[in-house]
């Protein structure tokens, strides 16, 4: 069996023992392997946070973006060279807080990128502050009286904003998660996976046990968006699997100037400005 080590750098992951990131990382490299992706044809964009540290553990092309900003460069890379597979690794703070505007707008554009949100409902690399998905009432270092806000609903937002692929996985269910990541990467267009991830060090409420009592596998595909939307509103149980997938041309496929070749292949050896200059006379 060909090993999945070809995607790994010499640096061993530095996450806390038992961290949900290990489950996600294993699923990711399994998915790369099953899809038989060439590490040279793969651009992984990482955000900042525990999940972002994935940058150092991979041996593919990696762009380690600024905090909250993984999605714009991911879209930029895809527009520059749409032959590449582009995967963004980002946390709930980066994607749903600092970079929420990018999340909403790039999904509308159906940019062909796969976005894996490591959603542990907490800022963990900065040692545990409230995040956009922290449930109301939870006490954290930055909210000692309990969070006042209602949590953000990433899947409902994605459905409402024309994301063409929306899914949820549970970080520790490697088999299922691998399959969903494979489907997301294979999907042409914006694919979102909101990954439920226990933070065993700082999140004392949403523990592994807490997740195990709530997570269940969605059985069938939803017939329509309304049904899928209803499921995203559930809080007693957390369904995993694909909430919605539809076929729609990706941004680069609708972009007039990318019909024939990748932008990076454009020849700039003979630029002629004649017509443009004549128009200005």
């Amino acid at each position: 069996m060909e090993n999945s080590n070809k995607y790994l750098s010499h640096i061993k992951p530095t996450w806390c023992p038992g961290c949900g990131n290990f489950g996600i990382f294993t699923s990711l490299k399994n998915a790369f392997k099953k899809l038989d992706l060439d590490p040279s044809e793969l651009a992984v964009v990482t955000d900042v946070g525990c999940s972002g540290n994935t940058a150092d553990f991979l041996k593919t092309y990696v762009f380690h973006a600024l905090h909250g900003r993984a999605l714009p460069p991911a879209a930029g890379i895809k527009l520059a060279n749409h032959k590449l597979k582009v995967v963004a690794i980002i946390g709930d703070g980066g994607c749903y807080g600092e970079g929420l505007g990018h999340y909403i707008n790039l999904m509308r554009g159906n940019h062909d990128i796969t976005v894996l949100v490591h959603d542990n409902s907490l800022y963990s690399l900065t040692t545990g502050q409230t995040s956009p998905t922290t449930p109301k009432g939870i006490k954290t270092k930055s909210s000692p009286n309990g969070v006042i806000e209602e949590p953000l609903n990433p899947l409902a937002l994605a459905l409402a904003n024309s994301a063409s692929f929306c899914a949820r996985t549970y970080a520790l269910d490697i088999k299922d998660q691998t399959n969903t990541i494979i489907k997301a990467i294979s999907h042409s267009g914006f694919s979102l996976i909101d990954i439920l991830q226990p933070c065993i060090t700082f999140n004392k409420t949403q523990t592994i046990k807490w997740y195990q009592e709530r997570v269940y596998k969605l059985k069938n595909r939803f017939k329509n968006k309304e049904e899928a939307f209803k499921e995203t509103l559930r809080t007693d149980k957390l369904g995993t699997g694909i909430f919605w997938q539809e076929k729609r041309p990706a941004y680069h496929q609708e972009c007039q100037t990318l019909k024939n070749e990748a932008l990076v292949a454009k020849n700039i050896k003979n630029i002629n400005l004649g017509e443009l200059i004549d128009k200005l006379v």
Partner: peptide
């Protein structure tokens, strides 16, 4: 969607060789 995206998208594109 904003100037932050404008520059970060351009950075990604430049990294990818354009």
């Amino acid at each position: 969607e904003d100037e932050i995206s404008a520059i970060n998208m351009a950075l990604g594109a430049s990294f990818a060789g354009v």
